[in-house]
Simulated scan of single mutants.
Amino acid sequence: MGKNIQLTVYGAEVLCPSCVNLPSSKEQYEWLQAAIGRKFGEDAIQYKYIDIFKPPEESQYKEFAERVVEEDMFYPVVLIDDEIVGEGNPKLKTVYKALEERGLEPQA
């Protein structure tokens, strides 16, 4: 299996204006976690959810949360390690591809 991979989702309780008919950021985070766990297992990925309006004090999270707000990015914004792989309505196919590029293999 691949190395330990960090998947971070930046979102908010309030839906982004362009995402009215989509699930909330938190619901999409939980959906991604479940879908990825089914395909790749639970061990190789660490998950973190960051509220863009109440980010933790660690500068990396705080700075990116501010960037999401300032640049009017569609949220949730999904990062694998430090690469943006989804914005607004993340696509599983794109997320899976990014995970496979980092050495993860689907479970049999």
Rank of each mutant, 00 (worst) to 15 (best):
D51M: 08
L7H: 07
D81Q: 14
G88E: 06
A12G: 14
R67T: 15
G41V: 06
E57M: 09
S24N: 02
V85M: 04
E58F: 00
L79H: 10
K3N: 15
Y61V: 01
E42R: 15
V9Q: 03
Y10K: 01
E70I: 07
K91Q: 14
A44L: 01
A65T: 10
E30D: 14
D72I: 03
E13S: 14
V77K: 04
L15N: 13
E27G: 00
G41K: 02
L32R: 04
V68H: 07
E83C: 00
E30K: 09
D82Q: 13
W31N: 12
N21H: 12
C19R: 03
K39A: 02
Y29C: 06
A44G: 09
G11N: 07
E87W: 02
I52W: 05
L104V: 08
S18Y: 05
Q60P: 00
E27C: 00
R38A: 12
L92H: 07
D72L: 12
S59N: 07
L32C: 04
T94S: 09
E70R: 14
Y10L: 09
L104I: 08
F53K: 10
K48C: 07
Y29Q: 05
T94C: 00
F40A: 06
E71M: 13
I50K: 09
G41Y: 02
N89Q: 12
S18L: 13
Y61H: 10
L104M: 13
V85L: 02
L79P: 07
F74R: 11
S24T: 15
E58R: 05
E13W: 08
K48P: 00
V69N: 04
D43P: 00
E30V: 01
I36A: 05
K62Y: 08
F64R: 03
L22Y: 11
S18V: 03
K93W: 01
G37C: 08
V68C: 12
E70H: 10
E63K: 15
E66V: 09
N4L: 14
F64L: 08
S59M: 10
D82A: 06
E27P: 00
L99F: 04
I50G: 08
I45G: 01
K54E: 12
Q33V: 10
P23T: 00
K91E: 15
G41W: 02
E101V: 00
A65M: 09
D51Y: 03
K48A: 14
T94Y: 00
D81V: 10
A34L: 11
Y61L: 01
S24I: 10
Y96K: 04
V78W: 02
E63M: 14
P90D: 06
K26S: 04
S24K: 05
T8R: 06
Q60R: 15
N21K: 11
A34F: 07
Q6F: 07
P56F: 11
E58Y: 01
I5G: 03
I45E: 02
A34Y: 06
